[in-house]
Amino acid sequence: MAGVDVGGKESFSLNLYPMLDVFSILIVFLLMNFSVSGESAEVSANLELPMSSIKVSLDSAASVAITKNEIVLQGGVVIPLTPNSQDVVEAYKKDGQGAIRKAYDEFKKLKAQNETLKNRQKNLGLSNSDVSTLVMQSDKTIPYRIIKRVLASAQQAEFISWKFAVQKRDVN
């Protein structure tokens, strides 16, 4: 801050150049990292994803979240887990092949919706969006026993492609 005596009156002028420098650097940084690649996928708050060195960012898609207490499907359907996340509650299991009845029914519904969407896109001459892939968001402590049940349920509803959500080590 500089004081200058002009005609007997004191005036103050603030040196804004350092601030301007900082702002310029900040703008350049933000522009370099600016991404308009659509919406980022939402991650459930009740789970901790494992760390990974994967560089590909998670796209939004229909997702399944497995927390320590429950499995939450895209439509809001909740499947409770037994204490210590050992398995799904017995009543929800499907006979044979290890699938979860409720999850299987939900995936079937989703598959039917996707087929309708695909047909509409085809009729309108639009390019097909990738709706056949599901996102798995699982807490890092969840045993594969439960993950496998979800995968088997989806597989029987003809979903065979998955994106496993992870926490990136290098954020970009």
């Binding site: 933000l30 990292n33 600016f34 991404s35 308009v36 690649s37 919406e39 980022s40 996928a41 991650v43 994803l49 990974s52 994967i54 560089k55 590909v56 960012s57 998670l58 796209d59 892939t133 996102v135 798995m136 995968l151 989806a154 597989q155 979903f159 065979i160 492609s161 998955w162 994106k163 496993f164 959500a165 992870v166 926490q167 990136k168 954020v171 970009n172």
Partner: peptide, 13 residues
């Protein structure tokens, strides 16, 4: 801006 800290790894069944 979207500062994405969540990644994905593709899996097939």
């Amino acid at each position: 801006s979207v500062f994405s800290a969540t990644g994905e790894t593709r899996i097939e069944v």
